[in-house]
């Protein structure tokens, strides 16, 4: 009796969680038709990499903001009817909305620190760990000698 009641409660909890899943996947409404698989891939790739400038933490593929909808439409036009390549699409967007529209910042003078900082930090940390370990070894040996 008690076990079956528990089971019912757990099923309800499970049901509640399962029913939450579709909420996050309903953002994109339009369904676009493409002539080739490459066009479709390019559209999806670019829609994922372009930031929605209104709702800043979403790409234009996921966002429901009207501007994101417009940008998807524009992207679709460029991919299907203007035969635009990746560079042309990026140029179009950056010219209007700035580098901010790109989720992957380009490697250029003002983003150099962004790109190399992680490697510099890694280098520094490795150097620090190595010198720290060496120093403690030297200290330990010193102690031994002192004994």
């Amino acid at each position: 009796m008690k076990a079956s009641a528990m089971k019912a409660v757990w099923s309800l909890v499970l049901l509640a969680f399962v029913s939450l899943i579709p909420l996050s996947a309903q953002a994109v409404i339009e369904s676009y038709q493409f002539d080739t698989a490459e066009q479709k891939l390019l559209y999806q790739k670019m829609a994922r990499e372009l930031r929605c400038v209104v709702c800043q933490n979403q790409n234009i593929l996921e966002s429901t903001a009207p501007l994101a909808q417009d940008l998807r439409q524009q992207l679709y036009q460029m991919v299907r009817y203007q035969n635009a390549d990746e560079k042309q699409i990026v140029d179009f967007m950056v010219q209007r909305y700035g580098d901010f529209v790109l989720y992957r910042p380009p490697l250029q003078a003002n983003t150099l620190i962004l790109w190399i900082a992680p490697f510099l930090l890694l280098l520094f940390s490795v150097y620090w760990v190595v010198s720290y370990v060496r120093q403690t070894q030297v200290d330990a040996q010193k102690e031994k000698h002192d004994d």
Partner: peptide, 13 residues
């Protein structure tokens, strides 16, 4: 009405 001119000006809102 479509916002296409606004897009050329990088209008965000």
């Amino acid at each position: 009405p479509t916002g296409r001119i606004g897009m050329d000006w990088g209008l965000i809102g």
